[in-house]
Amino acid sequence: MGFRDRGLEIKSQAQIDQMRVAGLLVGETLELLRAAAQPGVSTGRLDELAEANIRDHGGIPSFKGYSHPPFPASICASVNDEIVHGIPGERILVEGDIVSIDCGAIVDGWHGDAAITVGVGEVTAEVRELMRVTEEALWHGMCAARLGGRVTDISHAVEQHVRSQGSFGIIEDYTGHGIGSEMHMPPNVPNFGRAGRGPTLVQGLALAVEPMVTLGSKESDLLEDEWTVATVDGSFAAHFEHTFTLTEAGPWVLTAVDGGRSRLAELGIPYGGR
């Protein structure tokens, strides 16, 4: 493992393979939670399911005890106007809610980090569109990454896709990040900006890309629990995230159960996984 270009952690192939183990556990945990996010289920129950699945498969929840004040749970569960870092608890999900579930796991010292937004029962067409645009922006961002390119090529692709789809707010105060032996590492990966800036994309660099998009304003507030971030105007927000890396063949989405093969194929991008 080496560090270059302003402190970036560059992994060997063997270390990327270890990250895939952690990433796959995160991806499988999120699929479990996607199915469980139904009317009548509490966000605390989703957290219990996540922690059990991670620990039962040899992992450690990345989020539990993280930072200050220590995050008290194994997932973030952000409902409706909550953008990110929602604390799971007694809140019961009801028909028409959306819940953004962010999940991280450590396996043998290596991290995976991903997020999905799930509609609870039937949601409005406007909210379905928000989720579609946000998830597509994530994939367009990863597909814009090329060896020798720059980090903001991803940022620009995320922004351009969102802007092309209608009037949405793109959260600017929270970004994607490098990931590997720690959950949050250089570089930051914004969800907006000009292409061609920032560190060079090289083999062995792993990034977590995570667009956060709202139906209204991009402005956000940190709530009194010192973790939950919500929209100022009360508009619904969606959040999707994957951890990915680049190989000579193309992107490898370490937190997608299939490595990203199917979505990359839909977008005409070669699959770079093993």
Rank of each mutant, 00 (worst) to 15 (best):
E82N: 03
L138I: 03
A105F: 07
V79S: 01
G104L: 07
G65W: 12
C76D: 11
P88G: 10
H57W: 09
I106S: 12
C143P: 00
E31L: 13
N80C: 03
R55W: 02
H68T: 14
R150Q: 14
E126G: 05
C103G: 06
V158T: 12
C143T: 05
G149K: 13
H111N: 14
E136S: 09
E28R: 15
V107R: 12
V120Y: 10
I92G: 01
I54M: 09
D113G: 01
D108R: 14
P70Q: 13
V94S: 13
D97Y: 02
D153Q: 06
G58I: 04
A105R: 07
I106P: 00
G89K: 11
V107T: 07
A105T: 02
P88A: 12
G149L: 10
D153C: 07
V118I: 13
L49Y: 08
M131S: 03
D56W: 00
V127C: 03
S100E: 02
A36N: 01
W110H: 14
A144I: 05
D102C: 07
V107Q: 06
P69Y: 11
N80V: 01
L147T: 07
E90W: 00
I98Q: 07
L32A: 02
L147M: 04
S74F: 09
S155L: 10
W139H: 11
E31N: 14
E136P: 00
V84W: 02
L33C: 04
V79T: 02
L24K: 14
G23F: 10
L30C: 01
A145S: 03
A157G: 09
R55T: 13
S100D: 02
S74Q: 10
C143L: 00
V158A: 09
A52F: 04
E126A: 15
I116N: 08
A52G: 06
H68K: 13
S78M: 07
D97K: 04
L25G: 06
A137V: 06
A50R: 10
W139V: 06
V84E: 06
M142R: 03
L33T: 07
E48S: 09
V133L: 10
A22Q: 04
I116Q: 05
D113E: 10
H68S: 15
F71G: 02
W110P: 00
A35W: 01
I154D: 08
L24N: 13
C76F: 13
L25V: 03
L32V: 10
G89A: 11
I87L: 09
G112M: 03
T117E: 06
E31Q: 14
R45W: 05
R128M: 08
E135M: 02
R34P: 04
T29F: 10
P39L: 05
G104W: 04
H111Y: 15
E159L: 10
T29L: 11
L147I: 15
G86M: 08
R150V: 03
V158W: 07
F71M: 01
A35L: 11
N53E: 14
E129R: 15
A73K: 14
V99F: 05
I98V: 15
G112P: 01
I101Q: 09
S42V: 06
D153Y: 08
I83H: 10
S74I: 09
H85N: 08
L25C: 04
E126Y: 01
V118T: 13
G121F: 07
T134A: 12
L24Q: 14
A37H: 09
W139I: 08
G121H: 01
G86E: 07
H140T: 00
